[in-house]
Design a protein around this nucleic acid. Structure first.
Length: 1042
RNA sequence: GCCCGGGUGGUGGAACGGUAGACACGCAGGACUUAAAAUCCUGUGGCCGUUGAGGCCGUACGGGUUCGAGUCCCGUCCCGGGCACCA
């Protein structure tokens, strides 16, 4: 019987489901292994070949760990709240729950197609009230806790209330808003209930506040910083503006230091850790107060990392939003300052970013006193100082800071050198810390290391400043003005938010008539008129109408998998103590500072409360690379046309030939998008005269009459010169027709020419496609000889370029797969054609898990052939069973145990592509040895099982087993089988390889040296030189130094 | 500008400081076929030379450490990613 993957895979996939082979429980003595994939957002487009990369890799590890005797948790679920479902609902009126459900069903089916060992009984979705009950519960906990800086952990708000009532807040060291007033116990006790509640908001770990947020008018919602890229929304690319709004916030800043420290204890990619460190942005420095001249006690507080440069501070700059600006600006300067503030406020984030180089600012007329020099220095307003960082004000040291230097130059302010090593201050600032201080009062002559403590001591003694650590990390905005998300368990009373009692959870998302904001601009939930909190018959309160952001549900989901059906707790303690944390987490690097930071924050918080056992929930993280698509080449035709027709030639290095293409002028307003998936692998095509455009026009019209959007391609005949002289237009036509639906071909009899049309958005043909280089030139040029242009850099990099003679050159781009780029490859097609085992192995064989690479099926036949050959070791023609019980030879043993060793080592270090190589080598050797022995083949099946589970299961059962191959045990490597009595040593002379010698394995170093020196090839290269030294690395190499 | 990754055949990619290019694709030649497909065998970094000798050069570039460097160190160039008036 032939190897028939689809039949085998269907059979075993059903059997696995029936036998519940992948069901796991925590009641076992086995050690645990928790492997987790970042759960997907179930989009309408379904999976493409890029998604399963991580799933397959983790599945292989999961199966391997199971074979090694671990109890493996390998769950899957869906991050099911989110914008696309809501956008779809707005456009099509379909309830997000309905479309989400549909999408999930499709995902599930696609995933099941791949033979992944997920325990589907643990499937979760974040939009399920049984799930988000606990998301809301965690939110409640955050609301009821504050971060205590003395205890270095979260403590209950009740604890704070207790302290306030006894001693006020003067001695309370806690993470709180910068503008938290100082209160005494008396004040607190005299506060009304409402005032107390408002005051506590300064401390709660989640709280509403007026703040500047990224408002996206097109999406009608706020976005977090990591959802904004280059001033536009990451999703959709809509403009984003800064807007002051009331929003819920998460006090993640309280955990800045711990989030930073925690990175030290996890095995994550350095790039991700580095990104998180940058995002947290810790910098150590000091705050300093600069008294304002003539304003009584008023002072400007600045933050600086270079306190040592303070003697060089010759002016100060406030951010335009700084509260002191209107208070200190002198009357004569006010008009100018005001117009600057107005201008600055009108600038979008984008403009500001685009004009970084431009120096703008204005003098306030006020003076501040440099506390060290006692000099009065002018105070400016400029938007190179950001309101949101530090104190929103700086001391400007033009000799040491380039931005200050630029400003000083533009405004003719003094630039005072402060270190004897500073150079070229006429041309640029010099931020050096080398040398000794000059012009610097009490630190003159000191070095950087000596000066800093002196200055800090002086500041603290005089109450003018102190050392401080500053973070770039901002509190995370936690509300969205959207429908499809978790409602916040909050109701409002007297303008104060109150927590919904726990027994009211989950607060279920209400039904509404339209998924849009109200006319009054309130979030969609405000449309639910009867959705009110009624704790008693005569009390009615409004709920909070915002919903939680996308990252809420994904910030704790790995715990839910441990105990997914628990109605009493987010996760039962027993399950929690057994599974503890994720051993290996796999997902995309795009979540580096979003999900991966927020989820760590929640985990630290839960850890503080003693609810979870580990500070860091993911011990190891791997970012699987992206499988990219080859994007269509996009012609914005009107940019190129000015003549009648556009003449496009496609150079396919793959075919070493060209394709002609003509785009008629009347289509040039359109954007042409087309893919090249030539099924004409074996055909070559030659360019013909462009004079036949009229004929092309007629074909095009016919095609359009059929309602198809077509590009018309014109081919005279196949290349006579490429081994196929006998091919006629008729033959090509047949060939192309057989490749439906990708091609249409038409012969125009009167001129005996063939026209081929490509569907504009056809799918990739798996057989063949290749990188393309395209040359476009105008029709009135003659046919260009592209071979001459081939070496040009513009051809070598596949990017769009304009050629020297006005021709346009472009190539296909390799980028992220996305529906909008028509470059999506659906795994179902590959599975249908080659089988899931083949698809799994091929995707792994492509390269390391972390590497990104374009999807390309070129090599898949190699894996296919491998699987067929594996089958062939067991099953012969007519389904004969080839396996026998003979004892293996030493060569056979060695082949097997080499493979066991290599595969085990490589799988342990997650190098799955090389594992597959080793399996191939084993298979190749077994074929050479014509080995059909059970003692060899049985362990081989187990080695193969993680990679090609269906095939392995089939063979395992044919070998006579009734239980699943998943429960076999991993073969043990035995060194004895690798032992050999002869060893081959490569011999180098002066570091260059000159030959090999074979010696007894037991030979002493002296013997080896002696044998090596006797060799002809050694003597030849030694010449007359005597041997200086011989290095023998046992078992590896001999190097003779002359 | 700053911080991370990377640069190895025609291609994807292998190589604890120890025989560079495993494995696979592609290509070339051959076998089997009426033919094609499938399958199998052989070869395949470049150059020179042999025509079953062999030699030289090769891991972006230039230096260095070492008996020995793709791997470690210094400098340069290029590519990818992240951050960016962060004081």
């Amino acid at each position: 019987m032939e190897y028939t993957p689809r039949a085998i895979e269907k059979k075993w996939s059903e059997w696995w489901t029936k036998k519940q082979v992948y069901r796991v429980s925590h009641t076992t003595d086995k050690p645990k292994y928790y492997i987790l994939n970042m759960f997907p957002y179930p989009s309408g487009a379904g999976l493409h070949v890029g998604h399963p990369l991580g799933y397959i890799a983790s599945d292989i590890i999961a199966r391997y760990k199971r074979l090694r005797g671990y109890n493996v948790l390998n769950p899957m679920g869906y991050d099911a709240f989110g914008l696309p479902a809501e956008q779809f609902a707005i456009e099509k009126g379909v309830h997000p729950a309905v479309s989400t459900e549909q999408n999930i069903r499709y995902y599930r089916q696609q995933l099941e197609n791949l033979g992944l060992s997920f325990d589907w009984s643990r499937e979760i979705r974040t939009c399920d009230p049984k799930y988000y009950k606990w998301t809301q519960w965690i939110f409640s906990l955050l609301f009821e806790h504050y971060y205590d800086l003395d205890a270095q952990k979260a403590l209950p708000i009740a604890h704070l209330v207790e302290r306030f009532s006894q001693e006020g807040n003067a001695r309370v060291r806690a993470a709180c808003d910068d503008n938290t007033p100082k209160i005494t116990a008396e004040m607190w006790n005299n506060f009304s209930e409402r005032e107390q509640q408002l005051f506590l908001l300064h401390y709660r770990l989640t709280f509403p506040e007026e703040s500047f947020v990224n408002w996206c008018p097109a999406l009608g919602t706020v976005l977090s910083n990591d959802e904004v890229k280059d001033g536009v929304s990451e999703r959709g690319g809509y403009p984003v503006e800064r807007k002051r709004m009331k929003q819920w916030s998460m006090r993640i800043t309280a955990y800045a230091e711990r989030l930073l420290e925690g990175l030290e204890e996890v095995d994550w990619p350095e790039a991700i850790k580095e990104q998180q460190r940058n995002w947290i942005g810790r910098s150590q420095g000091a705050t300093v107060q600069f008294p304002l001249q003539g304003h009584g006690d008023l002072y400007i507080e600045v933050f600086t990392t270079r306190i040592d440069t303070i003697y060089g501070a010759t002016f100060m700059v406030l951010a335009p939003e700084h509260e002191l600006v209107p208070r200190i600006t002198t009357a004569t300067r006010w008009a100018e300052v005001q117009s600057y503030l107005k201008w600055a406020a009108s600038r979008s984030e984008r403009e500001r970013m685009a004009e970084v180089k431009r120096v703008t600012g204005v003098n306030t007329g006020a003076f501040a006193i440099n506390p060290f020099t006692k000099a009065a220095i002018p105070v400016y307003v400029a938007d190179y100082v950001l309101a949101g960082y530090g104190t929103g004000a700086i001391m400007a040291v033009p000799s040491g800071d380039q931005r200050d230097w630029n400003f000083a130059r533009a405004f003719q302010l003094p630039i005072v050198p402060i270190l004897d090593s500073q150079k070229n201050l006429e041309e640029a600032a010099d931020p050096t810390k080398e040398g000794r201080y000059i012009n610097s009062g009490m630190i003159n002559g000191l070095t950087y290391e000596e000066a800093v403590p002196v200055l800090l001591k002086w500041l603290e003694e005089n109450g003018l400043g102190k050392a401080r650590t500053q973070y770039k990390l901002r509190n995370a905005v936690f509300s969205r003005q959207r429908y499809w998300g978790e409602p916040l368990p909050i109701y409002w009373k007297d303008g104060v938010p109150y927590l919904l009692p726990q027994h009211e959870l989950p607060l279920v998302l209400p039904e509404i008539d339209k998924y849009l904001p109200t006319e009054a601009g309130e979030p969609p939930l405000a449309r639910a008129h009867h959705w009110r909190y009624r704790p008693s018959p005569n009390e009615v309160y409004e709920y909070e109408y915002s919903t939680m952001p996308g990252w809420a549900g994904s910030s704790w989901y790995w715990y839910r998998y441990m105990d997914p059906h628990n109605d009493e707790a987010f996760c039962g303690q027993e399950a929690l103590q057994y599974w503890r944390c994720v051993d290996w987490y796999i997902g995309g690097a795009e979540h580096a500072v979003g999900h991966l930071l927020y989820s760590r924050f929640w985990n630290h918080f839960l850890y503080d409360l003693g609810l979870v056992p580990e500070r860091e929930y993911a011990k190891k993280l791997t970012n699987q690379g992206m499988i990219q698509g080859r994007s269509s080449i996009v012609f914005r035709a009107k940019e190129f046309f000015y003549e009648e027709y556009l003449w496009v030639k496609v150079l396919q290095p793959f075919l070493k030939e060209y394709e002609p293409m003509i785009i008629p002028k009347n289509r040039m307003e359109e954007t042409f998008t087309y893919d090249f998936a030539f099924a004409v692998n074996d055909l070559a095509i030659e360019v013909v005269s462009w004079k036949l455009v009229d004929k092309i026009e007629s074909v095009r019209r016919t095609a359009e009459a059929d309602g198809k959007r077509l590009l018309v391609l014109f081919i005279e005949e196949l290349a006579k010169n490429i081994n196929q002289p006998e091919l006629t237009a008729e033959k090509i036509r047949t060939a192309l027709h057989s490749r439906e639906p990708f091609f249409m071909a038409e012969v125009v009899p009167e001129i005996d020419q063939l026209f081929v049309s490509y569907e504009l958005t056809h799918k990739y043909s798996p057989e063949c496609f290749s990188r393309l280089y395209v040359d476009i030139s105008l029709v009135n040029n003659d046919v260009l000889d592209l071979s001459a242009a081939r070496h040009l850099p513009m051809f070598q990099r596949a990017n769009f370029k304009v050629g020297p003679e006005g021709q346009f050159l472009c190539g296909s781009e390799i980028e992220k797969m996305s529906k909008s780029k028509y470059n999506v490859v659906n795994p179902d097609e590959i599975v249908e054609q080659y089988g899931a085992d083949c698809y799994r192995m091929y995707e792994m064989f492509l390269g390391p898990i972390e590497a990104s690479k374009p999807w390309d099926t070129k090599g898949i036949t190699g894996v296919q052939g491998f699987l067929k050959r594996v089958w062939g070791h067991f099953v012969g023609p007519n389904d004969t069973w080839l396996v026998n019980e003979e004892p293996p030879s030493s060569e056979e043993w060695r082949a097997l145990h080499t493979a066991i060793k290599k595969v085990t080592e490589d799988i342990e270090r997650f190098s799955l592509n090389t594992c597959i190589s080793h399996l191939m080598i084993l298979s190749n050797e077994l074929r050479t040895l014509k080995c059909h022995k059970r003692a060899i083949l049985e362990p081989t099946v187990v080695l193969l099982a993680p990679f090609a589970p269906h095939l392995a299961e089939e063979l395992w059962h044919r070998l006579g087993y009734e239980s699943s191959v998943c429960d076999a045990s991993w073969p043990t490597f035995d060194e004895r089988y690798l032992a050999s009595d002869r060893v081959v040593y490569p011999v180098q002379v002066n570091g260059k390889l000159r030959g090999n010698i074979e010696v007894d394995a037991s030979a002493s170093q002296e013997t080896i040296v002696q044998i090596a020196l006797e060799q002809d090839f050694v003597r030849r290269f030694l010449g007359d030189n005597g041997v200086k030294k011989v290095i023998v690395v046992p078992g590896r190499i001999v190097n003779i130094v002359a």
